[in-house]
Amino acid sequence: MPPPSEAFLAAAAPRRRRSTTPARRRALGYALLILPVLLATLVLFVYPIGQILTTSVVDRGLTLANYRRALGDPIYLRVLWITVKISLLTTLVCLLLGYPMAYLMAEAPPRVRGTLVAVVAISFFMSLLVKNYAWTVLLQETGVINTLLRRAHIIELPLPLMYNLFGVLVGMVHMLLPFVILPLFSVFAGMDRTLRHASRTLGAGGLRTFWHVTLPLSLPGVGAGALLVLIVSLGFFITPALLGSPREMMLANLIDNQVRQVINWPFASALAMLLLAFTLLTYLVYYRIFGTERLWEQV
């Protein structure tokens, strides 16, 4: 076979280059698209977290003393327990209040639905601080609720509505309710209504239809909402500070205390790392339950 002519090579070469260029260009395009968020993550998250981690374990050489202290001292373990307890309670109350609300929103006629979504969104976008101070006005001993109840002679002494667990829960649930309502709403809105019709014609009443069909199919939304609330709750700071008492001190309040009052940065850093580990653990548990279990994908 004669060697290929130069004309053939000249014709073949650019063709080969052209065939690889679009793919490479597309890859470059994707890289450019992801670059800003990658940079932001590096500068705003990875670097500071690395700093905190370093602060927590370096004290003239590597040490785990700060972690040992955080997990060994009953005072700090108590704060950890309070953090978990308040977060779980908040999640539970949010689910109990948010589930029927989300269902109602999905079932309501379009105009009512729009109003309900707006109500949820407005409370979602309102500043946390404003909401907490509003609750202070309502809940304190000389606040709106106690004053009204006393004027109506329903109570003699003011009810302890804040500076306790109740006050903290009210504030946190109010803040976090949209986090369960919105994912549940999207699950309900996307649910095939004829499934419920089918269940009815097959002999199941409203309650049994809910139990056997609606509830199981809404579990992914329950999981997503619960995860969001739980993760955000774990790091709550302002609400326990404003509406709670020292007995409702959560991990974030303890960190604040260590940074600003005690000025023990290494110990505060260790606590911060524990908070992060807790959050990741929560996510991992969720992922094991809902991430791999794909039996009830939406249809």
């Binding site: 089918a198 009815r200 014609t201 097959l202 002999g203 199941a204 056997h212 199919l217 009830w296």
Partner: peptide, 30 residues
């Protein structure tokens, strides 16, 4: 009479099978 007491069978355009149940459980449902 509410739908679930009318004792009729219904087939829907998009099947309306329960996605979280097996075929057996779907048919056993009624």
């Amino acid at each position: 009479t509410p739908a679930h007491r009318r004792a009729l069978g219904m087939v829907f355009q998009h099947y309306a099978l329960f996605p979280h149940m097996t075929v057996f459980d779907n048919v056993a449902y009624p």
